[in-house]
Protein backbone atom coordinates (compact mmCIF):
# COMPACT_ATOMS: atom_id res chain seq x y z
CA UNK A 1 0.00 0.00 0.00
CA UNK A 2 2.74 2.47 1.01
CA UNK A 3 4.71 1.48 -2.05
CA UNK A 4 1.69 2.22 -4.18
CA UNK A 5 1.28 5.68 -2.65
CA UNK A 6 4.94 6.48 -3.21
CA UNK A 7 4.67 5.23 -6.77
CA UNK A 8 1.67 7.45 -7.45
CA UNK A 9 3.38 10.48 -5.90
CA UNK A 10 6.43 9.81 -8.05
CA UNK A 11 4.28 9.63 -11.15
CA UNK A 12 2.61 12.89 -10.15
CA UNK A 13 5.99 14.61 -9.83
CA UNK A 14 7.01 13.35 -13.24
CA UNK A 15 3.77 14.77 -14.67
CA UNK A 16 4.53 18.13 -13.09
CA UNK A 17 8.05 18.08 -14.48
CA UNK A 18 6.71 17.44 -17.98
CA UNK A 19 4.14 20.22 -17.59
CA UNK A 20 6.85 22.66 -16.51
CA UNK A 21 9.00 21.69 -19.49
CA UNK A 22 6.12 22.12 -21.92
CA UNK A 23 5.14 25.54 -20.58
CA UNK A 24 8.75 26.70 -20.57
CA UNK A 25 9.37 25.48 -24.11
CA UNK A 26 6.06 26.92 -25.21
CA UNK A 27 6.99 30.31 -23.85
CA UNK A 28 10.44 30.10 -25.46
CA UNK A 29 9.20 29.33 -28.95
CA UNK A 30 6.68 32.17 -28.94
CA UNK A 31 7.97 35.06 -31.05
CA UNK A 32 9.40 37.85 -28.98
CA UNK A 33 10.29 37.61 -25.34
CA UNK A 34 9.36 39.22 -22.05
CA UNK A 35 11.35 42.34 -22.84
CA UNK A 36 9.78 43.00 -26.22
CA UNK A 37 6.30 42.70 -24.76
CA UNK A 38 7.21 44.74 -21.73
CA UNK A 39 8.91 47.57 -23.55
CA UNK A 40 6.55 47.43 -26.50
CA UNK A 41 7.46 50.14 -28.98
CA UNK A 42 10.60 51.12 -27.14
CA UNK A 43 12.03 47.63 -27.52
CA UNK A 44 15.26 48.57 -29.28
CA UNK A 45 18.76 49.65 -28.59
CA UNK A 46 20.05 50.30 -25.13
CA UNK A 47 16.69 49.98 -23.37
CA UNK A 48 16.18 46.49 -24.79
CA UNK A 49 19.73 45.40 -23.95
CA UNK A 50 19.35 46.70 -20.44
CA UNK A 51 16.09 44.91 -19.97
CA UNK A 52 17.52 41.64 -21.33
CA UNK A 53 20.41 41.94 -18.95
CA UNK A 54 18.18 42.84 -16.03
CA UNK A 55 15.85 39.90 -16.57
CA UNK A 56 18.77 37.59 -17.31
CA UNK A 57 17.53 36.64 -20.75
CA UNK A 58 21.06 36.57 -22.14
CA UNK A 59 21.93 33.24 -20.61
CA UNK A 60 21.13 30.03 -22.55
CA UNK A 61 17.56 28.70 -22.27
CA UNK A 62 18.40 25.49 -20.41
CA UNK A 63 20.25 27.44 -17.73
CA UNK A 64 17.30 29.71 -17.30
CA UNK A 65 14.99 26.68 -17.07
CA UNK A 66 17.14 25.06 -14.39
CA UNK A 67 17.34 28.32 -12.52
CA UNK A 68 13.57 28.88 -12.74
CA UNK A 69 12.74 25.25 -11.91
CA UNK A 70 14.93 25.22 -8.81
CA UNK A 71 13.32 28.45 -7.63
CA UNK A 72 9.87 27.02 -8.22
CA UNK A 73 10.81 23.93 -6.27
CA UNK A 74 11.59 26.23 -3.39
CA UNK A 75 8.25 27.98 -3.83
CA UNK A 76 9.52 31.12 -5.50
CA UNK A 77 7.94 31.92 -8.86
CA UNK A 78 9.94 35.05 -9.52
CA UNK A 79 8.57 38.43 -10.52
CA UNK A 80 5.57 39.36 -12.55
CA UNK A 81 6.27 41.69 -15.43
CA UNK A 82 3.24 43.90 -15.49
CA UNK A 83 3.12 44.73 -11.80
CA UNK A 84 6.82 44.24 -11.15
CA UNK A 85 5.89 42.48 -7.93
CA UNK A 86 6.70 38.98 -6.64
CA UNK A 87 4.34 36.48 -8.27
CA UNK A 88 3.65 34.90 -4.89
CA UNK A 89 2.08 38.17 -3.82
CA UNK A 90 0.02 38.33 -7.01
CA UNK A 91 -1.15 34.74 -6.63
CA UNK A 92 -1.82 34.65 -2.90
CA UNK A 93 -5.15 36.53 -2.76
CA UNK A 94 -6.28 34.99 -6.04
CA UNK A 95 -5.74 31.47 -4.73
CA UNK A 96 -7.65 32.41 -1.58
CA UNK A 97 -10.55 33.84 -3.58
CA UNK A 98 -10.75 30.80 -5.80
CA UNK A 99 -10.64 28.57 -2.75
CA UNK A 100 -13.55 30.44 -1.17
CA UNK A 101 -15.64 30.23 -4.33
CA UNK A 102 -14.77 26.58 -4.84
CA UNK A 103 -15.34 25.44 -1.29
CA UNK A 104 -18.71 27.16 -0.98
CA UNK A 105 -19.79 25.62 -4.29
CA UNK A 106 -18.51 22.23 -3.19
CA UNK A 107 -20.19 22.39 0.20
CA UNK A 108 -23.50 23.22 -1.41
CA UNK A 109 -23.22 21.42 -4.72
CA UNK A 110 -21.88 17.99 -3.85
CA UNK A 111 -24.31 17.04 -1.07
CA UNK A 112 -27.13 18.45 -3.16
CA UNK A 113 -26.00 16.43 -6.17
CA UNK A 114 -25.79 13.22 -4.16
CA UNK A 115 -29.21 13.72 -2.60
CA UNK A 116 -30.81 14.61 -5.93
CA UNK A 117 -29.11 11.66 -7.62
CA UNK A 118 -30.38 9.25 -4.98
CA UNK A 119 -33.90 10.65 -5.07
CA UNK A 120 -34.11 10.44 -8.84
CA UNK A 121 -32.79 6.89 -8.80
CA UNK A 122 -35.06 5.59 -6.05
CA UNK A 123 -38.15 7.20 -7.57
CA UNK A 124 -37.04 6.35 -11.06
CA UNK A 125 -39.59 7.31 -13.73
CA UNK A 126 -41.93 8.65 -11.05
CA UNK A 127 -42.84 12.28 -10.55
CA UNK A 128 -39.82 13.38 -8.42
CA UNK A 129 -37.44 11.83 -10.94
CA UNK A 130 -39.16 13.36 -13.95
CA UNK A 131 -39.18 16.81 -12.37
CA UNK A 132 -35.63 16.80 -11.06
CA UNK A 133 -34.24 15.13 -14.17
CA UNK A 134 -35.85 17.72 -16.43
CA UNK A 135 -34.34 20.53 -14.39
CA UNK A 136 -30.88 18.96 -14.22
CA UNK A 137 -30.76 18.22 -17.92
CA UNK A 138 -31.91 21.76 -18.60
CA UNK A 139 -29.23 23.36 -16.44
CA UNK A 140 -26.63 21.00 -17.87
CA UNK A 141 -27.32 22.03 -21.44
CA UNK A 142 -27.34 25.80 -20.97
CA UNK A 143 -23.81 27.14 -21.32
CA UNK A 144 -22.61 28.88 -18.18
CA UNK A 145 -22.09 32.29 -19.80
CA UNK A 146 -25.78 32.30 -20.69
CA UNK A 147 -27.04 31.06 -17.32
CA UNK A 148 -24.72 33.49 -15.52
CA UNK A 149 -25.86 36.39 -17.64
CA UNK A 150 -29.51 35.45 -17.13
CA UNK A 151 -28.95 35.28 -13.38
CA UNK A 152 -27.48 38.75 -13.39
CA UNK A 153 -30.36 40.02 -15.51
CA UNK A 154 -33.07 38.54 -13.31
CA UNK A 155 -31.68 38.68 -9.79
CA UNK A 156 -29.45 41.73 -9.97
CA UNK A 157 -31.07 43.97 -12.54
CA UNK A 158 -34.80 43.18 -12.48
CA UNK A 159 -35.15 42.24 -8.85
CA UNK A 160 -32.15 44.16 -7.55
CA UNK A 161 -31.58 41.73 -4.69
CA UNK A 162 -27.89 41.13 -5.11
CA UNK A 163 -24.97 42.92 -6.74
CA UNK A 164 -24.58 41.87 -10.36
CA UNK A 165 -20.82 41.90 -10.45
CA UNK A 166 -18.23 41.55 -7.78
CA UNK A 167 -16.62 44.94 -7.18
CA UNK A 168 -14.22 44.21 -4.41
CA UNK A 169 -10.45 44.34 -4.28
CA UNK A 170 -8.73 41.04 -4.77
CA UNK A 171 -7.52 41.08 -1.17
CA UNK A 172 -10.98 41.41 0.39
CA UNK A 173 -11.68 39.48 3.58
CA UNK A 174 -13.70 36.31 3.67
CA UNK A 175 -16.86 37.99 4.98
CA UNK A 176 -16.73 40.73 2.42
CA UNK A 177 -16.50 38.06 -0.24
CA UNK A 178 -19.33 35.92 1.06
CA UNK A 179 -22.18 38.28 0.24
CA UNK A 180 -20.75 38.84 -3.20
CA UNK A 181 -20.36 35.26 -4.25
CA UNK A 182 -23.94 34.05 -4.03
CA UNK A 183 -24.66 34.50 -7.71
CA UNK A 184 -21.37 32.97 -8.94
CA UNK A 185 -21.92 30.01 -6.63
CA UNK A 186 -25.43 29.48 -7.99
CA UNK A 187 -24.18 29.67 -11.57
CA UNK A 188 -21.38 27.16 -10.91
CA UNK A 189 -23.49 24.81 -8.81
CA UNK A 190 -26.16 24.57 -11.48
CA UNK A 191 -23.85 22.88 -13.95
CA UNK A 192 -21.74 20.98 -11.46
CA UNK A 193 -24.69 19.60 -9.50
CA UNK A 194 -26.54 18.60 -12.64
CA UNK A 195 -23.61 16.59 -13.97
CA UNK A 196 -22.94 14.86 -10.69
CA UNK A 197 -26.58 14.14 -9.95
CA UNK A 198 -26.92 12.37 -13.29
CA UNK A 199 -23.82 10.33 -12.50
CA UNK A 200 -25.05 9.36 -9.05
CA UNK A 201 -28.48 8.53 -10.46
CA UNK A 202 -27.20 6.05 -13.03
CA UNK A 203 -24.79 4.54 -10.54
CA UNK A 204 -27.55 3.98 -7.94
CA UNK A 205 -29.89 2.55 -10.58
CA UNK A 206 -27.20 0.13 -11.65
CA UNK A 207 -26.60 -1.07 -8.10
CA UNK A 208 -30.36 -1.31 -7.43
CA UNK A 209 -30.60 -3.77 -10.31
CA UNK A 210 -27.76 -5.92 -8.98
CA UNK A 211 -28.16 -9.44 -7.66
CA UNK A 212 -27.07 -8.49 -4.17
CA UNK A 213 -29.82 -5.90 -3.79
CA UNK A 214 -32.41 -8.44 -4.91
CA UNK A 215 -30.86 -10.82 -2.40
CA UNK A 216 -31.11 -8.22 0.37
CA UNK A 217 -34.80 -7.71 -0.41
CA UNK A 218 -35.41 -11.44 -0.38
CA UNK A 219 -33.55 -11.65 2.92
CA UNK A 220 -36.19 -9.39 4.40
CA UNK A 221 -34.01 -6.30 4.87
CA UNK A 222 -36.25 -3.22 5.28
CA UNK A 223 -36.13 -0.83 2.34
CA UNK A 224 -34.25 2.15 3.82
CA UNK A 225 -31.81 -0.08 5.63
CA UNK A 226 -31.09 -1.82 2.37
CA UNK A 227 -30.58 1.53 0.62
CA UNK A 228 -28.10 2.75 3.22
CA UNK A 229 -26.16 -0.46 3.90
CA UNK A 230 -26.26 -2.33 0.62
CA UNK A 231 -26.82 0.26 -2.09
CA UNK A 232 -25.20 3.60 -1.29
CA UNK A 233 -21.69 2.48 -0.26
CA UNK A 234 -21.38 0.60 -3.53
CA UNK A 235 -23.08 3.20 -5.68
CA UNK A 236 -21.11 6.19 -4.42
CA UNK A 237 -17.67 4.65 -4.87
CA UNK A 238 -17.42 5.45 -8.57
CA UNK A 239 -18.65 8.98 -7.78
CA UNK A 240 -15.47 9.79 -5.86
CA UNK A 241 -13.41 10.24 -9.00
CA UNK A 242 -16.02 12.46 -10.60
CA UNK A 243 -16.16 14.57 -7.45
CA UNK A 244 -12.38 14.89 -7.54
CA UNK A 245 -12.37 16.05 -11.14
CA UNK A 246 -15.07 18.58 -10.32
CA UNK A 247 -13.11 19.94 -7.37
CA UNK A 248 -10.00 20.26 -9.50
CA UNK A 249 -12.02 22.01 -12.18
CA UNK A 250 -13.42 24.43 -9.58
CA UNK A 251 -10.05 25.22 -8.01
CA UNK A 252 -8.45 25.64 -11.39
CA UNK A 253 -10.61 28.64 -11.88
CA UNK A 254 -13.97 28.65 -13.51
CA UNK A 255 -12.80 31.02 -16.17
CA UNK A 256 -16.10 31.92 -17.80
CA UNK A 257 -18.02 32.46 -14.58
CA UNK A 258 -15.24 34.52 -13.06
CA UNK A 259 -15.06 36.72 -16.11
CA UNK A 260 -18.84 37.24 -16.29
CA UNK A 261 -19.07 38.16 -12.60
CA UNK A 262 -15.76 40.01 -12.60
CA UNK A 263 -14.61 37.74 -9.78
CA UNK A 264 -10.93 38.12 -8.83
CA UNK A 265 -9.99 34.45 -8.82
CA UNK A 266 -7.38 32.30 -10.52
CA UNK A 267 -9.45 31.87 -13.66
CA UNK A 268 -9.55 35.56 -14.36
CA UNK A 269 -5.87 35.84 -13.58
CA UNK A 270 -5.19 33.34 -16.34
CA UNK A 271 -7.05 35.47 -18.85
CA UNK A 272 -5.46 38.69 -17.62
CA UNK A 273 -1.90 37.42 -17.63
CA UNK A 274 -2.28 35.88 -21.05
CA UNK A 275 -3.61 39.08 -22.56
CA UNK A 276 -0.87 41.07 -20.80
CA UNK A 277 1.80 38.66 -22.04
CA UNK A 278 2.87 38.28 -18.45
CA UNK A 279 4.74 35.09 -19.18
CA UNK A 280 6.21 34.37 -15.73
CA UNK A 281 2.69 34.49 -14.26
CA UNK A 282 1.35 32.19 -17.01
CA UNK A 283 4.13 29.72 -16.24
CA UNK A 284 3.42 29.87 -12.53
CA UNK A 285 -0.30 29.36 -13.11
CA UNK A 286 0.30 26.35 -15.36
CA UNK A 287 2.39 24.69 -12.65
CA UNK A 288 -0.11 25.47 -9.91
CA UNK A 289 -3.12 24.26 -11.84
CA UNK A 290 -1.30 21.09 -12.85
CA UNK A 291 -0.36 20.34 -9.25
CA UNK A 292 -3.97 20.87 -8.14
CA UNK A 293 -5.16 18.33 -10.71
CA UNK A 294 -2.45 15.83 -9.87
CA UNK A 295 -2.90 16.22 -6.14
CA UNK A 296 -6.67 15.91 -6.07
CA UNK A 297 -6.75 12.94 -8.39
CA UNK A 298 -4.14 11.26 -6.24
CA UNK A 299 -6.29 11.78 -3.15
CA UNK A 300 -9.36 10.47 -4.99
CA UNK A 301 -7.56 7.33 -6.12
CA UNK A 302 -6.29 6.64 -2.63
CA UNK A 303 -9.78 7.14 -1.21
CA UNK A 304 -11.25 4.70 -3.72
CA UNK A 305 -8.58 2.20 -2.76
CA UNK A 306 -9.25 2.69 0.90
CA UNK A 307 -13.04 2.42 0.67
CA UNK A 308 -13.27 -0.45 -1.78
CA UNK A 309 -12.46 -3.69 0.06
CA UNK A 310 -12.01 -5.43 -3.24
CA UNK A 311 -9.17 -3.21 -4.39
CA UNK A 312 -7.64 -3.05 -0.93
CA UNK A 313 -7.08 -6.74 -0.59
CA UNK A 314 -5.93 -7.02 -4.18
CA UNK A 315 -3.10 -4.73 -3.24
CA UNK A 316 -2.28 -6.68 -0.13
CA UNK A 317 -2.21 -9.96 -1.98
CA UNK A 318 0.46 -8.66 -4.36
Amino acid sequence: MLLLILKRIGLGLITLFIVSLITFVGVEVLPGDACTTYLEREAYGAALDACIKRLGLDVPAYERYLDWASNVARGDFGYSLSGEMPINEVLGPRVKNSLVLASVSILIGIPLAIVLGIITALWRDKLPDIMISTITIFSMTIPEFISATLLILIVAIWLGWLPGIVIIPSDATFYELLSNIILPVVAISMIMTAHMARMVRSSVIQVMASDYVQMAILKGVPYWKMVFRHVLPNALLPAINVVALTIAWLLGGVVVTEVVFNYPGLGRLVIESISNRDLPVVQALAIILASIYVGINLIADLMTLMLNPRLKSLQIRK
Partner: peptide, 22 residues
Amino acid sequence: EKIRGRKIAMIPQNAGQALTPN
Protein backbone atom coordinates in the same frame (compact mmCIF):
# COMPACT_ATOMS: atom_id res chain seq x y z
CA GLU B 1 -40.15 -8.35 5.27
CA LYS B 2 -41.43 -10.47 8.15
CA ILE B 3 -41.75 -13.54 5.95
CA ARG B 4 -38.72 -13.24 3.69
CA GLY B 5 -35.65 -14.66 5.36
CA ARG B 6 -37.69 -15.87 8.33
CA LYS B 7 -40.29 -18.19 6.82
CA ILE B 8 -39.07 -18.45 3.25
CA ALA B 9 -35.40 -17.98 2.44
CA MET B 10 -33.58 -17.80 -0.83
CA ILE B 11 -30.30 -19.28 -1.96
CA PRO B 12 -29.35 -17.40 -5.10
CA GLN B 13 -27.82 -18.62 -8.33
CA ASN B 14 -24.59 -16.72 -8.28
CA ALA B 15 -23.54 -16.16 -4.71
CA GLY B 16 -20.51 -14.22 -5.90
CA GLN B 17 -22.84 -11.52 -7.17
CA ALA B 18 -25.55 -11.94 -4.58
CA LEU B 19 -23.35 -11.07 -1.60
CA THR B 20 -22.95 -7.33 -1.12
CA PRO B 21 -19.31 -6.60 -1.97
CA ASN B 22 -18.63 -3.95 0.69
